[in-house]
């Protein structure tokens, strides 16, 4: 369960994100939409604990994230959440298999074992990239790279998937494949999904939609549950 109460965040005087009250139930699939610059990415970063709100509270399973230090938030993030970015953000010097297992190598909270390597191969198998596990990201297509990024977000079996426009750079076929992969994961592990998208076509597949441009951009915010 994710909960936001009276959250206020601003970069400059021109921009502020305000969410009075928001509840996302466990296992829910939430689509976050809105015009460019309305704060969708900021919203994802606040939920992930990458940014701290200026005021208000964000709860993750009744844990008040705003009371955590940045180091604690990093530990929490790597265990509880999986992140997928629009630009994939794979490390060009690591092979596909190593990119997938990267979260297990960068924080001592997670222990890397042989079973994780096996799990990475299973994930890659599920997205049709097992035979490319030894390649570097630069040797893959856009769609393949995003599939690798999605696999990376799932390697530690997080409770929450936070995706920032993961299908923005993909064609329809790849988009559908990525969404199917994410949805299958959420179904299997009862994971909560918060996905930022501009794509109106896919919104109907979600349990809940939050339109940030309607409710939050320089205004008193409300939540809209569809």
């Amino acid at each position: 369960m994710i909960s936001c109460r009276d959250v206020r965040f601003s970069y400059t005087a021109d921009f502020s994100l305000e969410i009075d009250h928001l509840e996302i139930g466990k296992g829910n699939r939430v689509a976050v939409t809105g015009a460019s610059g309305c704060g969708k990415t900021t919203f994802i970063k606040l939920l992930a604990g990458i940014l701290r709100p200026d005021s208000g509270k964000i709860f993750l399973n009744d844990l008040d994230m705003t009371t955590y230090s940045m180091a604690e938030l990093q530990d929490l993030r790597i265990v509880k959440t999986g992140l997928v970015f629009q630009e994939f953000e794979l490390l060009d010097y690591l092979r596909v298999i190593d990119n997938v297992t990267l979260p297990l190598r960068i924080n001592p909270v997670l222990k890397f074992g042989q079973e994780h390597r096996q799990r990475a191969l299973e994930l890659l198998d599920a997205v049709g990239l097992r035979d490319k596990s030894k390649r570097y990201p630069g040797q893959l297509s856009q769609g393949e790279r995003q599939r690798v990024a999605v696999c990376r977000s799932m390697i530690a079996t997080p409770e929450i998937l936070l995706c920032d426009e993961p299908t923005a750079n993909l064609d329809a076929k790849n988009r559908d494949a990525i969404l199917r992969l994410i949805f299958d994961y959420c179904d299997t592990f009862k994971a909560t999904l918060v996905l930022v998208t501009h794509d109106r076509e896919i919104v109907s597949a979600f349990d809940q939609q939050i339109d940030l441009s309607t409710y939050s951009f320089n205004r008193n915010s409300k939540t809209d549950e569809s």
């Binding site: 530990d75 490390l91 924080n107």
Partner: peptide
């Protein structure tokens, strides 16, 4: 990116 996905600062 490493920080976003949860890398400990000391590890980086």
């Amino acid at each position: 990116t490493l920080r976003y996905i949860g890398a400990a600062r000391g590890r980086i």
